[in-house]
Simulated assay, not measured.
Amino acid sequence: MKQTHASQERRSRSMARSFANYYDKVMAPLEKRYITAWRKKLLKHAEGRVLEIGGGTGINFPLYRNCEKVIAIEPNPHMIEKSIVRQKQASVPIQLIESKAEKLPFTDQYFDTIVITLVLCSVDNMEQVIQECKRVLKPNGKLLVLEHVKMEQPVLAGLQHLLTPAWKTIADGCHLNRNPEELIEKYGFNIISRKKYLSSLVVSLIARK
């Protein structure tokens, strides 16, 4: 039994390392054509003390401008290693912390802005993450979200549902069929801006606590 558990741990670490190594290469064409422009439009609204959920390889870091400081949490240590180059390229201070988003290591009402980009698809408990974001965000603070989501067209949404089990295995737990917007509203955030891209596959949200 111990050997089985140890084997699972080794496999998990290996997958985490592999995901960190290929993520930027796989995403590069989409980033160049679409996503980087969407990130820039959203992140210009980040201000004050900022928390980034799932900093990944740090692709957002050079895009921050009018911020006091950005604290980026990321559970994958190999992603954090990759992000150090972009941390040094940033024009605002970036602090890296290895942590999961389901239990944030911060006091209540600590941040002015929280940024989540292409992360909620793969967290273990999306509901808990949204609750934690509300806890650490200041009154009237901003939640900035860019996510791929369950599509509005029923046939395409059904296809996403069918593909998700296999996709999770190869994409570090990524779900194709989640709808974070419902939870954001459920937990009392007021969505003040909503933009949809690629036939509603991607949504960009600005919400206030």
Rank of each mutant, 00 (worst) to 15 (best):
V123E: 07
S99N: 13
V155N: 11
N179R: 14
P29V: 15
K142P: 00
K168N: 03
Q109Y: 07
P62G: 13
V26D: 01
F106Q: 06
C121V: 06
T57Q: 05
H78P: 01
A6P: 03
E102C: 12
D172L: 02
K150I: 10
I35D: 02
K32G: 14
W167H: 11
L205M: 12
D108V: 12
A37G: 15
Y110F: 13
Y197K: 06
W167Q: 07
K100P: 00
S199I: 10
S204Q: 15
A6R: 15
F106D: 08
N60D: 14
A6K: 15
L118S: 01
S12I: 09
R33I: 15
I59P: 01
R86W: 01
L30V: 15
Y64G: 03
K25A: 15
H45A: 11
I35M: 10
K138I: 09
V149N: 05
V50T: 08
H45I: 06
K40Y: 00
D124C: 00
S200I: 02
L43D: 01
K150L: 14
S122G: 04
A46L: 04
K134C: 08
K195N: 14
G141W: 05
E52F: 04
L51R: 11
E52A: 00
Q95G: 03
L159V: 12
I130W: 06
G55I: 02
A157E: 00
K195I: 03
K150E: 12
N140F: 08
V149L: 03
V115A: 02
A171Y: 07
W38I: 12
E127R: 15
R49H: 08
G56A: 01
I35F: 15
A28N: 13
Q95D: 07
E185H: 11
K25D: 11
M1C: 07
T113M: 04
H148W: 10
K186R: 15
Y22M: 11
F61S: 08
A46C: 04
R178D: 09
I59G: 01
M126T: 08
D24N: 14
Q8V: 01
N190K: 13
K40C: 00
I84Q: 08
E68Q: 12
H45C: 07
P165I: 07
K100H: 05
K196Q: 13
E132N: 04
T4W: 08
W167Y: 11
L118E: 02
I97W: 03
V202S: 02
L63Y: 04
P93H: 06
G55V: 00
L137N: 05
Y64V: 09
G158H: 10
H5M: 14
T107N: 13
V136Y: 03
G173F: 07
L144A: 04
A6T: 13
I94P: 03
L30G: 06
V129F: 04
V203E: 07
S14E: 13
